[in-house]
C-alpha cells in the first residue's frame, strides 16, 4: 500500500495546482478579457453607473406600474445569496393555500384573462428573471392603468420584448422582467411623482 502513497499525494498536489488554480484562473483571465460583461455577472447599471441588478436575476417588483416577477422562495424573496425553490410537494397544503391566495390577488387586476401557472408558482432558483408572455399580458391592464396608457400599448411592448424559443423549439418564449420595466419607465413614465 505504501508504494501508492507517493503517486497519490503528488498527483493530488499537481491536480490542485493545474486544475484548481491554473485552469480556473486562466479561464477567469480569458473570460474577463473577451466577455467582461458576461463574466462579471451581466450587471445592469443606471445612467450614473450605479449597479441596479443583473439582467439574469429576478429582483422584487411590487408596485402596480411594474411588471411583477414570479413569486420567489429565495431567502425572503429574490435573495441572490440564498437561491432555491420552495421544495413543497404537489400535495402540500402550504403550496395549495399559497397558490390560491396569490391567484385571488392577481385575479382582481387581470381583466378576466386566465392566470398562467408561472404567475402563481415559485421558480427553482427563486431568481427566475423571466415570466411567460401570457403572464405579462395578464398584467398589462394593471400596468396600463397605473401609467395612464392603454393596455394595447403595453401588450404591444410585451410582444416586442418577448424572446422566442431558440429555433422555435429549444426552451420557451419569455419576457425578461427587469428589461421590460426599464423600457416601461423610459417610454411610459409614471405621470405623477410618486409618494415615496
Amino acid at each position: 500500500m505504501l508504494q501508492h502513497v507517493r503517486p497519490a499525494v503528488v498527483m493530488m498536489a499537481l491536480f490542485t495546482l493545474v486544475l484548481g488554480l491554473g485552469y480556473p484562473l486562466a479561464m477567469t483571465g480569458v473570460a474577463g478579457l473577451v466577455f467582461p460583461y458576461q463574466a462579471g455577472g451581466s450587471l445592469v447599471r443606471d445612467a450614473s453607473g450605479q449597479v441596479i441588478g443583473s439582467a439574469l436575476l429576478a429582483q422584487g417588483f411590487a408596485k402596480p406600474e411594474y411588471l411583477h416577477p414570479r413569486p420567489s422562495a429565495a431567502g425572503n424573496g429574490y435573495d441572490a445569496t440564498a437561491s432555491g425553490g420552495s421544495n413543497l410537494g404537489p400535495m402540500d397544503q402550504h403550496l395549495i393555500d399559497r397558490v390560491k391566495g396569490d391567484a385571488a390577488t392577481l385575479r382582481k387586476d387581470a381583466g378576466g384573462l386566465p392566470i398562467p401557472a408561472d404567475a402563481v408558482t415559485t421558480s427553482g432558483s427563486g431568481l427566475d428573471p423571466d415570466v411567460t408572455p401570457e403572464n405579462a399580458h395578464m398584467q398589462a391592464l394593471r400596468i396600463a392603468n397605473a401609467r395612464g396608457v392603454s393596455a394595447a400599448q403595453i401588450d404591444s411592448l410585451v410582444d416586442q420584448m418577448t424572446t422566442p424559443a431558440v429555433l422555435g423549439f429549444i426552451g420557451e418564449p419569455r419576457v425578461n422582467v427587469l428589461a421590460l420595466n426599464r423600457v416601461l419607465d423610459q417610454r411610459f413614465p409614471v405621470a405623477h411623482p410618486q409618494a415615496h
Binding site: R70, G85, N87, P90, I115, A117, D118, T121, T122, D128
Partner: peptide
C-alpha cells in the same frame, strides 16, 4: 386556485 392547470411550474424556470 382555478388558474391554468398545467404545466407544473412550481420549482421550474420559465
Amino acid at each position: 386556485a382555478h388558474v391554468v392547470t398545467t404545466p407544473n411550474m412550481e420549482g421550474k424556470e420559465v
